[in-house]
């Protein structure tokens, strides 16, 4: 290992920004995503109901703009956050479980091969 690598390591360590526990951030973002999703759906439905409840075009446009469009944006953003942080956690768990099961399966297979060879 050369001096360049050590220098790079030392510089990267110095630049490392310590963040709080990442798990806490994930929980908060998951909660925010869920709230955005619910509020977005609520706004969308509310906007739709308001727009259909009036014959005034200006009111309909305002209801669709502030309700349905904002709602849609919130639903998309909320869904993205929800999927990212709920699925991320699930996929990590699934990967660990998958590796564990594969390892056990291979161990059993090797043991069976060794047994059959004796």
């Amino acid at each position: 290992m050369n001096e360049e690598r050590i220098t790079q390591f030392t510089e990267e360590v110095a630049e490392l920004k310590l963040r709080g526990a990442k798990g806490d951030n994930e929980r908060w973002l998951l909660l925010i995503g869920s709230i955005m999703l619910v509020v977005g759906v609520g706004l969308g439905v509310g906007g739709g109901v308001m727009a259909s409840g009036t014959t005034n075009t200006a009111d309909q446009v305002a209801a669709i703009a502030t309700g349905s469009l904002v709602g849609l944006v919130l639903v998309i953003a909320g869904t993205a956050l929800f999927l990212r942080y709920s699925m991320g956690r699930f996929i990590r768990f699934w990967m660990v479980r998958f590796v564990h099961e594969q390892r056990s399966e291979t161990d059993r297979l090797i043991a069976a091969i060794e047994k059959s060879q004796k």
Partner: peptide, 19 residues
């Protein structure tokens, strides 16, 4: 402390990435 810097509380993935 790693390379003279206090890294208590750093994420394991960040330390792994550094080396």
């Amino acid at each position: 402390n790693i390379a003279g810097h206090d890294l208590t509380g750093a994420a394991a993935s960040e330390l792994a990435r550094l080396g």
